[in-house]
Computed example of a mutant assay.
Amino acid sequence: MRKLENKTAIVTGGSRGIGANLCESLAAAGARVVVNYASSEDAAAEVVSRIEAAGGKAMAVQADVSKSADVTKLFDAAEEKFGKVDILVNNAGVVHYKTIQETTDEEFARVMQVNVTGVFHGMREASRRLVDGGKVISISSSAALMFLPTYGPYCASKGAIEQLSRSLAKELGPRGITSNIVSPGPTETEMFLGNNEQEKIDRMRNLAALGRLGKPDDMGPVIVFLASDESGWITGQVIPVNGGTA
Rank of each mutant, 00 (worst) to 15 (best):
P174S: 03
S141A: 08
G30M: 09
Y151H: 11
R128V: 07
R203Q: 15
I51F: 10
K73G: 14
I51M: 11
G194H: 00
N242D: 15
G244N: 06
K135A: 15
M191W: 09
G211I: 06
Q101Y: 14
K57A: 12
A169P: 10
M204Y: 13
K81R: 13
S141K: 00
G214R: 04
I18E: 00
I87M: 09
H96R: 06
I10N: 07
A58V: 10
I87S: 09
T245G: 00
S15Y: 08
F147S: 13
V35E: 08
V85I: 12
S165D: 14
T189G: 04
I137C: 03
V47R: 11
V94I: 15
S167G: 15
M123T: 10
P240N: 02
R32E: 12
R205D: 08
D202M: 08
T235F: 06
R124W: 04
K170Q: 13
R124P: 10
N206Y: 15
V238R: 14
T72M: 12
E106K: 09
K135H: 09
V85H: 02
A208Q: 12
V119E: 09
R32V: 08
V65D: 00
V131C: 13
F147P: 05
K135T: 07
G133P: 10
V34R: 09
S15K: 00
R203H: 10
E106P: 05
L26N: 02
P186M: 03
I10P: 10
E80Y: 01
I223W: 07
A31T: 05
A44Y: 14
S183E: 10
L148P: 00
I10C: 03
S167E: 12
K7L: 01
S228K: 05
P240W: 00
G30K: 11
K3L: 15
L88Q: 04
V222D: 03
R175A: 08
G122R: 05
E41R: 15
A109Y: 06
G13A: 10
V114G: 04
